[in-house]
């Protein structure tokens, strides 16, 4: 058994009961547009991912469909509203809602973001950037400890796509994330598109950014499409729009990451301009083709 597999085994599960992990395959985001078609056509796909908050309602069609889809597929629950990077204390009612949801659907993976989205009781509906210094590091670790305690499971933390940096930052992003992983024991959801977007937006080398991440802790990968804009100086500014197919440069960076990680559950994210289901399935197949092309021995050596 490799070191990676050891570290990926979920911790804090019910004693004597082993929680399954996501398969080393590609998955797609579950969109309401596709629910009936998925049930009707039963596509061959590794897993589905949902945004936790969309299912924090009492009943109705969302739960009806998710229950049926969950019976047939592995599931990843991805939170977008916990505000782990927030200055406020974690919202315990929100944690309660998450606990109920995770208990109901028993997902193979739970992840959240290195970002904040609530402040002073107001929900700002975006994944906002945190400065990388000792104070935020301590707070983020404290919040992740609370999440993992409350939910009784290890969570994956996603690296952000950012558009600005803070004068107050004293650490590079991969170092900050590496320290969070080390202190809290959480895993890393490596969003390759976010690494690419942030690297372009902040003039960094994207491969170096991937290599510097705590790769042994990676439990899942996200891929998505971005939109292109420019900043005030005319430099390229990429926006994490989730509204386009995965860009060729991001596929390249994905190959680079997989060479170091080995096969890894990989999500194709699409939240804008949702295409027909077969289009997303084809993108997932592309990710699986890349995964299969890896030499298993080489990839195991890469993480050893």
């Amino acid at each position: 058994m490799t070191a990676r597999a050891d570290r990926l085994r979920p911790i804090g599960a019910v004693p004597g009961q082993k929680r399954r992990s996501l398969p080393e395959r590609a998955g797609i985001g579950l969109k309401p547009e596709h629910l009936q078609e998925i049930l009707d056509t039963a596509p061959d796909i590794g897993f589905f991912e949902i945004h936790a908050e969309n299912y924090m309602v009492d009943g109705g069609p969302f739960h009806h469909y998710l229950t049926r889809i969950r019976e047939r597929y592995p599931l990843s629950i991805h939170g977008v509203g916990l505000s782990i990077g927030g200055e406020d204390a974690l919202d315990e009612r929100h944690l309660d809602r998450l606990a109920v949801l995770l208990d109901r659907y028993q997902p193979e993976s739970f992840s959240e973001h290195l970002a904040w989205s609530s402040h002073g009781g107001t929900f700002l509906n975006d994944l906002l950037p945190v400065p990388y210094h000792a104070a935020t590091l301590a707070r983020v670790c404290e919040h992740i400890d609370r999440v993992q305690d409350r939910l009784k499971r290890r969570m994956l933390l996603e690296n952000p796509a950012t558009y600005v940096e803070f004068a107050a930052s004293t650490m590079a992003e991969p170092d900050f994330i590496g320290e969070v992983v080390r202190r809290s024991g959480c895993g890393l959801l490596l969003d390759v598109n976010n690494v690419y977007v942030s690297s372009i937006n902040h003039g960094r080398d994207q491969r170096a950014a991937v290599s510097a991440m705590p790769l042994a802790a990676v439990g899942q990968i996200h891929l998505a499409g971005f939109a292109e804009d420019t900043d005030a100086a005319g430099a390229s500014l990429l926006i994490d729009s989730h509204g386009a197919p995965v860009a060729e440069a991001v596929w390249d960076l994905y190959r680079y990451a997989l060479d170091r990680l080995g096969p890894m559950p990989t999500l194709i994210e699409r939240d804008n301009d949702i295409p027909p289901l077969p289009v997303l399935l084809a993108e997932a197949q592309q990710a699986e083709r890349i995964m299969k092309r890896l030499s298993p021995i080489a990839s195991r050596e890469a993480v050893a």
Binding site: K31, E33, H51, A52, G81, T230, H242
Partner: peptide, 22 residues
């Protein structure tokens, strides 16, 4: 007819693509 999930983790499509309703 189908309500969409309103929470997601995308960023707006941009700041200079004038003319889009987004």
């Amino acid at each position: 007819v189908a309500l969409k999930g309103k929470n997601d983790c995308k960023a707006g499509a941009g700041t200079t693509c004038a003319g889009t309703s987004k």
